[in-house]
Amino acid sequence: MPKRNFATLEEFKANLHQEGATLVEFSGGKVPCILVSPKKYEEMLGKVYGKRVSADTLLDIFYDGQDVFVDVNVKFAGTDFEENFLLYANDMLEFFDALAESGIVAMGPSENTYANSQNVFMIQLPKKDAAQKALAIIKANAKSRTK
């Protein structure tokens, strides 16, 4: 999986994931969900539908003592589907808390027409402790801009 590098805060901001993220209810708990365009969602499902697929996920954390960014890389083995989602963690503490707790990340379509559906694709993280370490780094380094 390619590691992305950014040199300036402006580069980080320019590469942020635009479709957003949310939390979804699943088995009595909350699961973090990365939203993608309906086109990208359909493309992803088309590549994995009917196949036994494993997903490789990598959380790459960038921080400077104030701003924390997490680059979430998802690659489906045996397909050419690989995506990076750069998230600004300062504003998403609940998202990363749910990730550390559940060890699952979901992906779902971003358009409102799908808002009430159960149309999400869930991915089990290979190592839940990586998400827990990421949460600890985020909590220690993120300084909320709302203070």
Rank of each mutant, 00 (worst) to 15 (best):
M1R: 15
P2H: 12
P2V: 05
P2E: 07
K3A: 09
K3V: 05
R4H: 13
F6C: 03
T8C: 14
L9S: 10
E10V: 03
F12V: 00
F12I: 00
K13V: 00
K13N: 10
A14P: 02
N15F: 13
H17K: 03
Q18H: 08
E19D: 14
T22K: 15
L23H: 08
V24F: 06
V24H: 06
F26A: 04
S27I: 13
G28I: 11
G28S: 06
G29R: 00
G29C: 11
K30Q: 14
V31S: 04
P32W: 08
C33M: 11
C33I: 02
I34F: 06
L35P: 02
V36E: 07
V36S: 04
V36T: 12
S37Q: 13
P38H: 02
P38G: 11
K39H: 04
K39V: 08
K40V: 14
K40L: 14
Y41G: 02
Y41P: 01
Y41N: 04
M44L: 14
M44A: 08
M44W: 07
G46W: 01
K47D: 01
K47F: 00
K51G: 00
S54M: 08
S54K: 12
A55K: 05
T57F: 02
L58W: 02
L58F: 02
L58D: 12
L58E: 13
I61T: 14
F62M: 05
F62W: 12
F62G: 03
Y63K: 09
D64A: 05
D64E: 15
G65A: 08
G65D: 02
G65C: 10
Q66M: 12
D67H: 07
V68C: 14
F69D: 14
F69V: 00
V70W: 01
D71L: 09
V72I: 13
V72A: 13
F76C: 05
A77V: 04
D80L: 12
F81C: 12
F81R: 15
E82T: 09
E83W: 03
E83C: 06
N84P: 02
L86F: 01
L86D: 11
L87C: 10
L87N: 08
A89F: 01
A89T: 00
N90F: 01
N90D: 14
D91L: 11
M92I: 01
M92G: 03
M92N: 09
L93N: 03
L93F: 01
E94M: 09
F95R: 04
F96T: 06
L99C: 10
A100M: 11
G103S: 07
A106F: 02
A106G: 10
G108A: 12
G108C: 11
P109E: 15
S110A: 12
S110F: 00
E111M: 09
N112H: 08
N112L: 11
T113C: 07
Y114E: 05
Y114D: 09
A115I: 12
N116R: 01
Q118E: 15
N119W: 15
F121Q: 10
M122C: 08
I123W: 07
L125V: 09
K127C: 09
D129Q: 10
D129Y: 08
A130M: 07
K133W: 06
A134I: 04
L135H: 04
I137G: 01
K139S: 11
K139L: 14
K139P: 15
A140C: 05
A142N: 11
K143Q: 13
K143R: 15
S144I: 05
S144T: 04
R145E: 01
T146V: 11
T146S: 13
T146G: 07
